[in-house]
């Protein structure tokens, strides 16, 4: 056994077009998520970083077709599991926070109900008990007046509040060992972004989560992550500790990415 909770090996695939033609988008992607650590997967949009993450849970777009690769979670290949076994992994072992939390929550059910549904699914028990857990989870992610908020609908939440609720659902209601966050702060105000990141770091630390943070924001990565995977155009171009990547980037693309973000910060 290695110290990696999840090992992605040589994951490749293409999008199948309407007429059956293939557009290759992932080329032998390999990286490891070390147990208990926070790993960042960085790269520009279109680099394939989200696609790989969605594939871990088996919720990639239907037009994507894998051509090779393995995803070893605790040593067994997720890609070989049938739908039923995969359903047992989702939420219980691996869960995910999405980019636009208000769209990621169902508009016609209250936030509390959605959290309670997941609680009942993962832990059973009565609906009332599940609702109590939902309210507690909302309280834990610092949503004020959680009793009242639980009865509200996603459109009544601000983007930041909705993301807190989403994080509560993915990390507290589900009790996963691996939490994947797909651009969790993109589209939020800068001050809210740092609040949300603080919450994520604090939750992963206190609950001993292995975390995979998908982002294009290198500033966030430098502050929070121990490990970094850099992706470009469907390939992993560099992996290493955050310190190594930030101080001695070896790949040309990583260097450009770094200098670009430093230019932005200097301005």
């Amino acid at each position: 056994m290695s110290d990696a909770l999840l090992e992605i090996e040589d994951y490749s695939g293409a999008f199948v077009g309407e007429t059956g033609e293939l557009t290759p988008v992932l080329h032998g992607v390999s990286y490891r998520l070390k147990t208990g650590m926070m790993t960042a997967v960085v790269g520009e949009s279109g680099s394939g970083k989200s696609l790989v993450a969605l594939s871990i849970l088996g919720i990639q777009p239907p037009a994507f077709e894998r051509s090779s690769g393995r995803m070893l979670f605790r040593g067994s290949d997720l890609l070989e599991l049938d739908e039923r076994a995969m359903q047992g992994i989702r939420g219980a072992e691996i869960s995910m926070v999405f980019q636009d939390a208000r769209a990621a929550l169902n508009p016609v059910f209250t936030v509390g109900r959605q959290l309670a549904d997941v609680w009942q699914l993962q832990h059973g028990g009565s609906r009332r008990a599940a609702m109590t857990q939902a309210i507690e989870a909302l309280r834990r992610v610092s949503i004020p007046e959680p009793e009242r908020r639980a009865l509200q609908y996603p459109h009544q939440f601000s983007g930041g509040m909705a993301q807190r609720a989403m994080i509560a659902m993915a990390s507290l209601i589900c009790e996963p060992s691996l939490l994947i966050l797909d651009e969790p702060t993109t589209g939020l105000d800068v001050t809210i972004q740092s609040d949300i990141m603080e919450l994520i770091v604090e939750l992963s630390r206190t609950r001993g989560l292995t975390t995979c943070l998908i982002t294009h924001d290198l500033g966030v990565v430098a502050e929070t992550c121990q490990e970094v995977v850099v992706m470009n155009a469907g390939r992993v171009v560099e992996t290493g500790s955050a310190e190594a990547i930030f101080t001695r980037p070896s790949d040309g693309y990583t260097q450009r990415l770094l200098s670009a973000s430093q230019l932005v910060e200097a301005a």
Partner: peptide, 17 residues
């Protein structure tokens, strides 16, 4: 195909739900 259905699947809900 919506985001909220993707969330429901990611949280482990079954097909019927």
């Amino acid at each position: 195909q919506s985001d909220y259905v993707r969330t429901a699947i990611a949280m482990g809900h079954g097909k019927r739900v």
